[in-house]
Design a binder for these strands. Structure first.
Lengths: 120, 120
DNA sequence: ATTATATGTGAATAACTGTTCAACTGTCAA
DNA sequence: TTGACAGTTGAACAGTTATTCACATATAAT
């Protein structure tokens, strides 16, 4: 395999490792979904929302009060979380109660916390 | 507690829940660090880099080839990962070999993957 | 010393994202 | 029906970020 078969502007130093690693890499679609999932968690506001919902289901107004932020901002973020399948909601009269859709989120959170603690 | 004690523009509907949740929320610094950690994982390029490094330690050039991207781009991202304490490196002559710093990253990745699979 | 190669980095650009604002929908109560 | 309120949403703005480009640094080989 010559250097010209590679897309990038490098020489190949460790051909075997490169080829083996390429072979074992998940496909692009998986990485996109995975990155999108972590991107959702990678925002302070959304992280706080999820932490709050991990304790109780709550309406938009409650969450806004817990976080000390506007309803609009929270609603936008809840929309993002809902479209990503991370929270779901139920409507009761004028209010909309949000809750975690999935317990994977909780697990990921816990390990993230462990990481933070470990780095202190 | 009157509505005026709250920062946001809402009335409080479920006072008990709000107060209890505020009491149990981790502090702001923790959320910032947690969000920063997930933000790092929430990028396709960095996710691919970490997935590759989970298989082998690799030099910048190898990673660039595995991902089909420029050395410069990869080096920038590795700098970000290094400054976040997620990867570390060792220098051997002209080459710099990168590796995962911490096995928490691997765990988080696995659970993220599970989440993706679960949602299919 | 000079050259080639591996990597790092600052500046610039383009794309993305979170919050605010204003307007809107839908529901309840009078 | 009218008013009040919970929530949603689109547009705009400001801030952030990923990649590219050009150049700088460091090491090895000649």
């Amino acid at each position: 395999m010559s250097k010209n078969e590679f897309i990038c502007d490098c020489n190949v130093i460790h051909k075997y490792v490169v080829e083996k690693t390429i072979k074992n890499m998940p496909d692009a679609d998986t990485f996109n979904k995975l990155a999108d999932f972590f991107k959702i968690l990678g925002d302070t506001t959304r992280a706080k929302i999820l932490s709050a919902l991990d304790q109780n289901e709550m309406c938009v107004c409650d969450i806004a009060n817990v976080l000390g932020m506007s309803k609009s901002s929270i609603s936008h973020q809840l929309g993002t979380l809902r479209r990503s399948g991370i929270v779901k909601c139920r409507k009761v009269g004028k209010e909309v109660f949000y809750m975690l859709d999935d317990d994977h989120v909780q697990k990921v959170f816990e390990i993230g916390m462990e990481h933070i603690e470990h780095k202190k």
